[in-house]
Write a protein that binds this DNA or RNA. Structure first.
Lengths: 241, 241
DNA sequence: GTCTATACATGGATAGAC
DNA sequence: GTCTATCCATGTATAGAC
């Protein structure tokens, strides 16, 4: 099936990030009523795609379903994003940008407890507010991440390595217990994202249809406490043993 | 609109769980050389399917790919499992059985630290030894779990509720710190399964192709320590505050 | 029971009218 | 830029010879 899959086109970094991330008609620069309409339509399609890809995965999602969800004829979707894969990759790029900036609270001179607490809470909030984005990312990674290999190995690794250095310094300075910083991140990601990616399982076990705002509050409290304790930190911001 | 997209196929509950869970030819009972060959072939197909479904998801997996991986002609796969969905559901049933029995170490009279430690280690070992099974399950849940709703809401919930009662008692008896038992399980599942489901992300961040035995050892140590600390427990088995 | 050839449906992508 | 009609590849499932 895969033929020359995906990874191949990893190189072609399309126009970096934001704006009109896909098509080829590429109008002048970015202003004007036409460009505005284009951006609006792209946004609509991307929002629809986020939901459909999250629910059905890449192959399970159909352009027809995405078009329907965006209230557009199927051909329009192909007009703005020439192929299904191009649309998928645009969507992934948007999602990865969100991912990268979530750990901003972890800085050299921050208080460890406050920084980790803020990070955990931001991640839980993300699971609550952008469950579809989280699921698209999860789906991609579970299936081997061929479309985001470059991102994982370079941008994400670099970002995480930076945060790991900070945590190592905190440990060296005795501001928190010695824990493996990489695995600490793996645990934070897993424990927080599970409320988006595995929501239906958590909800079923709790005997409800879907998680409530109260559940997310409890989730944030629980994960925060777990992470802080595992680092020998107290919620207030003081360092323990 | 949204005719009966993917999600709809939840209703058809097939034969409950165990044995040869699929075909319709259904020979006599279970003995004889024919039956043995049948079981062997079914096993081969299921093993191949586990890998293919894990890598590509339900819709992304093709019967041709499964047949190829099992070194059988495509028609044989359909002979043993009439439809792709029947094969998928058989596979899921096998996987769910594994899932249910993993928490066996958590019993009324066990030592909390030892019981939780054993559970965490069993889960990490499962991620290491059966990554494809874990991914198939993860994929199903991420996509809404329509094929396993009944399992999640009944069997799994009942099993977890039982374990939750035990943990509540441990807390009441002062044998561990007060934590929300449900969220404790969510964290354990997430933090351990991430080493199978999100392996490629962890590997990329660690700068390698795939996780090594040493990584899994570190992972188990890390998650064990985190869970025990979050419950106010010491690795040895003694209870802390 | 095994396998080759094939029927039939779905879905990605495009042509070409508006 | 928008949309309808259509092309064509892929993939599930089966018929029917061995």
């Amino acid at each position: 099936m895969a033929k020359n899959s995906a990874v191949s086109m990893a190189a072609s970094n399309l126009e970096s990030v934001s704006s009109s991330a896909s098509g080829q008609p590429a109008p002048r620069k970015s202003a004007g009523p036409r460009a505005a309409a284009r951006r609006a339509n792209e946004k609509r399609i991307l929002a629809a795609a986020e939901e459909v890809f999250a629910l059905a995965g890449f192959t399970g999602a159909t352009t027809a379903a995405i078009a329907r969800r965006a209230s557009l004829p199927k051909a329009n979707v192909h007009y703005y994003f020439r192929t299904k894969k191009a649309l998928y990759r645009s969507l992934l790029n948007n999602i990865l940008d969100l991912w990268l900036n979530e750990a901003d609270s972890i800085t050299e001179d921050a208080d460890p407890a406050e920084a980790l607490s803020a990070y955990v809470r931001a991640k839980v909030a993300y699971s609550q507010n952008r469950p579809f984005a989280s699921k698209v990312f999860a789906n991609e990674v579970v299936h081997g991440g061929s479309q985001i290999r470059d991102y994982l190995e370079n941008q994400l690794k670099a970002r995480v390595d930076g945060k790991v250095s900070i945590i190592r310094r905190w440990i060296a300075e005795g501001r928190m217990s010695p824990v493996d910083p990489y695995h600490l991140f793996f645990s934070i990601w897993a424990a927080t994202q599970t409320y988006a990616d595995f929501e239906c399982q958590a909800a079923a076990v709790l005997g409800k249809d879907k998680l409530t705002a109260g559940d997310y509050r409890k989730a944030a409290d629980h994960v925060e406490a777990m992470i802080l304790k595992s680092c020998g930190l107290e919620p207030g911001g003081a360092a323990g043993s």
